[in-house]
Simulated assay, not measured.
Amino acid sequence: MSAVVIILALIVLINVTFAVRFIVDVVKHREEIKKEPGNGIMLAFSSTIIFFFSTFGVSDFAISSIFYRKAKLVSDKKLPGTLNTQCVIPVAVMALAFITVINVDIKTLVVCIVAQIIGAYIGPRFVVKLSPKVIRRFIGVGLVIATMFILAGKFNLVPSGGTATGLYGSKLVIAAICLFVYGALNNIGIGSYALTMVTVYALGLNPVVAFPIMMGACTFSVPIGSMQFIKYGEYSRKITLFTSTFGVLGVLVGVYLVKGLDVSMLQWVVAAILLYSGVSMLINEFKASKANKESQHSAA
């Protein structure tokens, strides 16, 4: 049995485990789900679109953060958990597709996957203890950082990558450390796609190798962290239910039907949206913090 077959089998195993825990939780809280905000048709449509673009590396974390907050579908407290749980099944489909069609060094893939799993496993234990204010600040900074990476690539300010399909020595160690951090960041609502892509480019790998690494690492690390969020109940069950179904449809279209889609203009639009959302979120948080201090000062 080849290493690739083993990895694919493990992807199926861990995601089936997540699916079982999620289904048990949904059945247990089915009455609560009916009371959660969100129209079924809207969620079906948005899930398909979000994960269609996610297939091309456009962060579903970033887009979802903007949409869910604007539509008031989930509280800031439950946003990180929702961002993680909603993408588990769609990302598993991406990983299975990309790992089978793109050539990547198995050792590099395995090291990156393991590093991100460890980061994701540790993260939720601390994230659920954070206040909504801290989470908003993290997400705001994350959106701005994601925008900077996109713009840096558009203006050729970061390396465009090389032709290698694997990493060795110190470069592999650097990649492992970065993926560990990205796994932890996933749990506070900061997506790892853009970060992983830039890391891959900077280390001299063929840019296309970013896809199996991104999806492969996430499809192991995100379920690990997501099962922690399910345990604590810190996520939207309704949103996750719809993305686990209709998000997969978006992925299948993205992977198998429109691989040649030119997303250059889309990247500019997404960059503008992310920058606006991230900056406005941070400004609003600063204003709220300032108003709170003034209120406390007046009361004193």
Rank of each mutant, 00 (worst) to 15 (best):
E32I: 06
L83I: 11
V128G: 06
G191H: 06
S64L: 04
N206I: 03
I49M: 13
V258M: 13
T219M: 02
I145S: 09
F211I: 07
N292W: 02
G254Y: 07
A146D: 11
V158C: 04
M265W: 05
A164T: 10
T163H: 04
K133R: 15
M94N: 14
T85Y: 09
V58R: 07
M94K: 04
T219C: 10
G123L: 08
L109C: 10
L257T: 00
S54K: 09
K171R: 08
P223N: 02
Y235C: 03
I190G: 00
E36W: 13
T163L: 09
V141T: 10
F229M: 12
I135H: 03
L109H: 07
T147R: 06
I139V: 15
I6H: 05
Y256N: 05
N292S: 12
R21K: 13
C87V: 15
G162D: 13
V255Q: 13
V222L: 04
V158N: 07
K72W: 05
I23C: 11
E294H: 12
I224V: 14
I11E: 09
R21T: 06
L266Q: 02
L43G: 08
R137M: 15
A271L: 08
I113W: 08
I23H: 08
I66S: 03
S64K: 04
L257H: 01
I14G: 03
V114Y: 06
F126N: 10
A271E: 01
A210F: 01
L185H: 03
A164F: 00
V5D: 08
S59E: 09
V114I: 15
Y168I: 05
S221K: 02
K129M: 12
K231C: 00
V208A: 15
L282K: 03
V24R: 15
R237G: 06
A175Q: 03
K287M: 10
L151S: 02
V269C: 02
P80L: 11
Y121W: 14
K133P: 00
